[in-house]
């Protein structure tokens, strides 16, 4: 069995998972680029974390990186 087969066999699992992760990353990236100040860290750090540590990077951004008020 090859990789494509694995994905095709489990589509009901992969589709929502991918949608959620991509959606979350996009939301985080949009939020990062629309704000200048963050509670911790800087823009480069949050963009890198969001892109490379899925999905924890985006979640961390929303929970502790985003400036709260």
């Amino acid at each position: 069995m090859n990789n494509a087969n694995i994905v095709m066999d489990n589509l009901p699992l992969f589709i929502p998972l991918i949608l959620l992760e991509v959606g979350l990353d996009l939301a985080a990236l949009i939020h990062i680029f629309r704000h200048k100040n963050y509670r911790y860290g800087n823009r480069i750090l949050w963009v890198l974390l969001t892109l490379f540590i899925n999905p924890i990077g985006a979640i961390l951004y929303f929970v502790i990186g985003r400036e709260t008020y």
């Binding site: 959620l20 992760e21 979350l24 999905p55």
Partner: peptide
């Protein structure tokens, strides 16, 4: 979102 991801994964 996080726990839906956990639920699926």
């Amino acid at each position: 979102i996080v726990f839906v991801i956990f639920g699926i994964s």
